[in-house]
Design a protein around this nucleic acid. Structure first.
Length: 300
DNA sequence: GCGTCCAGGTCTACC
DNA sequence: GGTAGACCTGGACGC
């Protein structure tokens, strides 16, 4: 069953998919030979849909649901809502592109359709994954996320696994998370987060539509144990707020190479550098340090 | 093959 | 408010 999404002229599917490492973490899977993005989506009715996504023309994205049963009209709408959320078609980037055009060094951004950062259908998945990126190599992040999906998600024949919901993680022991999922000392953080959500104490899915000032939202995100300045800054970017840089060691190194001839500086210097870009500074920072990715269709 | 060291963010205790 | 040490894992390195 094929569904169509109409996309604006400034949208570029592969620039969005390869905007950061999320596309290589399950349930996302890039099928390079088919030029499609694949993942399972869990709908509110309990139905799990295997879908592939591709851009067929500048104005159309095709979402193909591989289902034996026909989806109801509401299920189709929900699937499309999830896809739009993931590829950021529910956000307006005109203001950002207008801003980028003002700077000679950033005119490549609107031209290439960069700027939309791929995200998960749920805030929960984004936050758990972000905690799994802290204080470890990317290879270890991949191990943790793969274990979460394979050992706690739902399996659909050969299509793969879903990302576990908060109840699935909340029901684990700390020992299981440490030893089987291999999240190490992050285990109590993931447990606390999942249990607070399951009990209804923490409503993180509302963060995407929250209208509170970004500073307050940042503090709320920081209140999750295991989420420090780096993780909170990057979670905010996935919530559509770009006021924080979310600096990590890799970005720091890239910045030094691009702007300081490899010479090290403090984070304060990096923050000062991006201050003139106001509420978009986090996005300009990220696009600056990943600019070289946009030279290839599949940069990694 | 084994042991040691280091990198990678965040938390807690302490000053 | 700033800082040191602990947390845990994988990889690099020396023996």
């Amino acid at each position: 069953m094929k569904l169509t999404l109409t996309v604006p002229p400034n949208f570029h599917f592969w620039r969005t998919v390869y905007s950061h490492g999320w596309c290589s973490l399950p349930p996302f899977e890039v099928r390079k030979d088919e030029a499609r993005l694949h993942r399972l989506f869990a709908l509110s009715s309990g139905t799990i849909v295997e879908a592939t996504i591709e851009q067929r023309s500048p104005s159309r994205v095709i979402v193909e649901a591989h289902q034996e049963k026909t989806l109801t009209a509401e299920q189709k709408r929900e699937l499309l809502r999830h896809v739009k959320t993931c590829v950021r078609l529910d956000e307006d980037y005109d203001e950002f592109y207008h801003e980028a055009k003002k700077y000679k060094q950033y005119r490549w951004i609107p031209k290439s359709g960069a700027g939309r950062l791929l995200r998960a259908p749920t805030v929960f998945e984004d936050v758990v994954k972000m905690i799994c990126t802290t204080n470890c190599s990317w290879a270890l992040t991949e191990v943790m996320v793969e274990n979460l999906c394979k050992k706690l998600g739902f399996k659909i024949h050969d299509a793969g696994y879903t990302f576990p919901n908060s109840e699935a993680i909340a029901g684990c022991t700390e020992k299981f998370l440490r030893k089987e999922i291999r999240v190490g000392y992050r285990a109590p953080y993931l447990l606390e987060l999942s249990r607070r959500i399951s009990k209804g104490e923490l409503k993180i899915e509302l963060w995407r539509t929250s209208t509170i000032p970004t500073g307050e939202l940042f503090e709320e995100v920081r209140s999750v144990k295991g989420v420090g300045p780096y993780a909170a800054g990057n979670i905010l970017k996935l919530l559509g707020r770009y006021d924080y840089l979310g600096i990590d060691s890799w970005c720091r190194k890239q910045f030094f190479e691009i702007h300081k001839n490899g010479r090290k500086t403090s984070d304060r210097v990096i923050e000062k550098f991006y201050e003139p870009f106001g509420k978009w500074r986090g996005l300009f920072f990220w696009l600056d340090v990943t600019k070289h990715w946009y030279e290839k269709k599949f940069p990694f």
